[in-house]
Write a protein that binds this DNA or RNA. Structure first.
Lengths: 182, 182
DNA sequence: TTCTTCATGTAAACGGTTACATGATTCG
DNA sequence: CGAATCATGTAACCGTTTACATGAAGAA
């Protein structure tokens, strides 16, 4: 529970950050390790501040624009480490609208079902190909820069996940006797 | 949005159901096509009733225990079909606590990281093996009974997903130079 | 008789999204 | 000058979980 807390704490432990930085970081990487909107991040930062896990310094950007740069405190680092050492339960099966549609797919005509399957296949496959293409670039960076190693590992995880989904769709098509367009 | 609505509508379209039946159905199958607690299902059923998508008849179980058996209406079936024909966007990357822990894993000692990885590997692998073992049983049923076909397809999806996760953990171990116990 | 399962609900809290709201800075 | 980006917040709403609450039926 309260996992956003630890995602923020972890980022603040890498280097001092603003709420805006955190938002960008969550949106940026393909290999999303977490996701949150700024409307969730700012209140959480306030809460971490109250709990004494982070502190901030106001910096002036340009003429007068204030930004709050948060750093982790000793107490914050301790709590982060404590959390990192904990056991992770395997996550509940994610809710997947496509899977739900497929489950009740016998109500559709053969053509409709084929369309449903093909549309998903197209999307998943193009995402898979895109991630694969990004792997090469990240792979080289991961060799020397240790900060790219974790990005690389997560990217590999994403590729394997997408690959499994694509393969599943191919299996479904075969099982249902549906032709997949490529 | 409101996907629980369609999960319930779909089940009610298979055969008349009580709220309790729906709850059981969601909890039962390995190849969970959806998940919800009874505290979410009962209010949703009331809402579907108001919208005229389901109707119910009260049945007496035993001496005096009343149960509400819901069936889908014509309007409900139409809305379900309309929804089934829609396109499914690919779901957002699921939030995964283990992935988050791994991302900040450089803060742990080599031994701690090894433990973290091994614990997850053990869980994932045993789940994978369990699902695989269930595949055989379901496979035979899927040959003749059409109602087992969709169960079978979803189970295959689950196996591929778990398999990919296991493979990813193995890749991570190799990348980090960590030995996985089997 | 006691325990499990069947059966139906409500209330509070939580995590997350969407929308509302404001204003400075930088780049073309 | 105008558009994109930087920067920080709040409020309402929605979906979901946990806890509260009750009681009958069936099996051991």
């Amino acid at each position: 529970m309260r996992e956003l807390k630890y995602a923020i704490l972890g980022l603040a432990d890498c280097s001092p950050v603003t709420g805006y930085d955190i938002t960008k970081c969550f949106n940026a990487s393909l290999s999303k390790f977490w996701d949150a909107k700024h409307s969730q991040i700012y209140p959480e930062l306030h809460r971490l501040l109250e709990e004494g896990l982070v502190e901030y310094q106001v910096t002036i950007q340009g003429e007068k624009m204030e930004k709050k740069v948060y750093s982790i405190t000793k107490k914050g680092r301790e709590e982060l480490l404590e959390w990192l050492r904990k056991d992770s339960d395997i996550m509940a099966v994610p809710k997947d609208t496509f899977r739900l549609r497929l489950y009740f797919g016998d109500r559709l005509t053969r053509e409709e079902l084929s369309e449903t399957l093909n549309r998903q296949y197209k999307k998943r496959k193009s995402r898979f190909i895109y991630l694969e293409s990004r792997k090469q670039a990240t792979s080289e960076a991961a060799q020397d820069k240790s900060r790219y190693q974790r990005e690389y590992m997560l990217l590999c995880g994403g590729i394997l996940r997408e690959g499994a989904y694509v393969k599943w769709l191919e299996e479904c098509a075969e099982f249902l006797g549906i032709e997949l367009e490529d």
